[in-house]
Computed example of a mutant assay.
Amino acid sequence: MEKSKVYFTNMRTSFNENLPQKLERLIKKAGIDSIDFDEKYTAIKIHFGEPGNLAYLRPNYAAVVVDVVKQLGGKPFLTDCNTLYVGGRKNALDHIDAAYKNGFSPFQTGCHVIIADGLKGTDEELVPVENGEYVKEAKIGRAIMDADIFITLNHFKGHESTGFGGALKNIGMGCGSRAGKMEMHSAGKPYVDTEKCIGCGRCIKICAHDAPSIADRKASINQDKCVGCGRCIGVCPKDAVLPAGDESFDILNKKIAEYSYAVLNGRPNFHISLVVDVSPYCDCHAENDVPIVPNVGMFASFDPVALDQACADAVNKQHVMRGSLLEERLNEHEDFHDHFTNVTPETNWHVAIEHAKKLGLGTDEYELIEI
């Protein structure tokens, strides 16, 4: 496979060009206008940021992508799927509130927010995964699969389970419904935290397989009957139903690659990553830490695998930020000569790259073109 082209620009500005203008020039130079957007519904997948986290991408960047899509005749919308864990984005109403509070309103970005897997994270489409080693049918938010064109706008940063979060993480994990996220995170099935359970019976009503039952005003789930759809997690009013969260990090990375394949296969797609505010952990946290490296720049490519590899390589060329978790970790253990491994030694981000290559999503061989 020949090298993929990855376009890059740094964060320097001039009196003649600010950062939004520079981002527009980058994505046009990278060839986004080669896609036929005419009257096409265009999903722009982004992470709106967990309330309390301030490392998420500013909505100004999203507005640039929206404007370009509109210039090219497309019908864009910003989208994400609900979270599996308890937090400020676990249902569509809270999720949209969080997006608006963080500045992603139609007045700021120029388009609407659609939570792709619906009110409770159960509106999904089953998408076959050809040659999937772990996933045969990915559970993807329906609005994402309804779109004609798929674009990612990624905040590239560290991640406590996958090493880093970039294009593949934003696509695979981000586009999974609640059941899909549970499938990626868990080898097992959901269970009930009886201290939180109030015995309301909503899990019983939603289950098509008679897995939940109630005794002494507390629910339990029959693991033999449970198929792991995750709908009970979505309807529980007290967040008492929890995923097992017991999948190994390597298999998690492989499942993310397979979910990414389900999302991208068979339709035009384009990917943008901003390597700024490189926090050690995901934007799903309700807080963010000191960046582990300085801001690097903005990248764009049609190849999400090459894009992730280029961003990781760029981060690893940066010096360690003083006072960061990365500096602290380097004082605790040996230097693995990889910033992400140094932050979370138990992870291996290369696994997702290699598995995505195996699936035919792209290549880690790239030509970096600086503009």
Rank of each mutant, 00 (worst) to 15 (best):
N60D: 15
N60E: 12
A63V: 09
V64P: 05
K70W: 11
L72R: 06
L72Y: 06
L72I: 05
G74R: 07
F77R: 06
L78E: 07
N82T: 02
T83D: 09
L84A: 07
L84G: 07
Y85F: 14
G88L: 08
N91P: 03
A92Y: 08
A92G: 03
D94M: 15
D94T: 08
I96W: 11
I96M: 10
D97S: 14
A98F: 11
Y100G: 12
K101R: 13
G103N: 11
G103I: 04
F104P: 00
F104C: 02
S105I: 11
F107Y: 14
C111H: 08
V113G: 10
I114G: 14
I115A: 04
A116E: 08
D123C: 13
D123A: 09
E125A: 15
E125M: 13
N131S: 09
N131Q: 13
G132F: 05
G132Y: 06
G132C: 03
E133L: 07
E133T: 07
E133I: 04
Y134M: 07
E137Y: 11
A138M: 06
A138H: 05
G141E: 07
A143C: 12
M145R: 11
D146W: 15
D146K: 09
I149T: 01
I149L: 02
I149W: 03
I151K: 04
T152A: 04
L153M: 03
L153D: 00
H155N: 02
H155Y: 01
F156L: 06
G158T: 06
H159R: 08
E160P: 10
T162H: 08
G166L: 01
L168Q: 06
K169V: 00
N170E: 01
I171M: 07
G172A: 06
G174L: 04
G176A: 04
R178Q: 02
M182P: 01
E183H: 14
M184H: 11
H185F: 07
S186C: 00
S186L: 00
A187K: 10
K189Y: 12
P190I: 01
P190E: 00
Y191D: 07
D193V: 00
K196T: 01
K196W: 03
C197W: 10
C197Y: 15
I198V: 12
G201L: 05
